[in-house]
C-alpha cells in the first residue's frame, strides 16, 4: 500500500495515487466513497493479521490446482487485417498509436 506506515489508515491521497496509476479519473465524491470502501477491505485484512498463521502457507490462488500446462504446439492465429480493423488506427500492417513519452519500463 502507498501509505508509509503499514498500519496507518488509507487516505484519499493514497486512493488518488492508485487511481492515477490505473488511469482512472475519480471525482471528489467517488474518491471519498472508494476511500471508505478500501478502508473496510483493509480493515478485514487487518483482522486476519491478528490470527496466528505461522506455518500456514500463503495462498496464491483459491483453486487447489498446480501445474496447468499445455504442450508447445502452434495453434490458431487471428488474421492481421481483422485485428487491425478493430483498432482506432493502423498503418503498414501495424497498430498506429499516439506518440508515447519515454521508453517502456
Amino acid at each position: 500500500m502507498p501509505s508509509s506506515e503499514p498500519d496507518a489508515p488509507i487516505t484519499s491521497a493514497d486512493v488518488a495515487k492508485v487511481a492515477s496509476l490505473a488511469r482512472l479519473r475519480l471525482d471528489d465524491a467517488e474518491l471519498e466513497r472508494f476511500t471508505h470502501q478500501l478502508a473496510d477491505i483493509l480493515g478485514h485484512a487487518a483482522d486476519l493479521e491478528t490470527l496466528d498463521l505461522a506455518g500456514v502457507e500463503p495462498m496464491a490462488h483459491p483453486i487447489p490446482l498446480v501445474n496447468v500446462l499445455r504442450p508447445d504446439v502452434p495453434g490458431d492465429l487471428v488474421d492481421r487485417d481483422e485485428a487491425l480493423a478493430q483498432a482506432p488506427a493502423a498503418e503498414d500492417g501495424q497498430f498506429r498509436v499516439p506518440p508515447v513519452l519515454g521508453e517502456a519500463p
Binding site: R70, V73, P74, G75, D76, L77, V78, R80, A83, L84, D92, G93, Q94, F95
Partner: peptide, 17 residues
C-alpha cells in the same frame, strides 16, 4: 498461448486473442 515464437515475419502475423 499457441501463437508462434519466431524471429521476424511480417508485422502482426504471429498474433492470437
Amino acid at each position: 498461448s499457441a501463437a508462434p515464437n519466431e524471429f521476424g515475419g511480417a508485422p502482426n502475423t504471429h498474433i492470437d486473442p
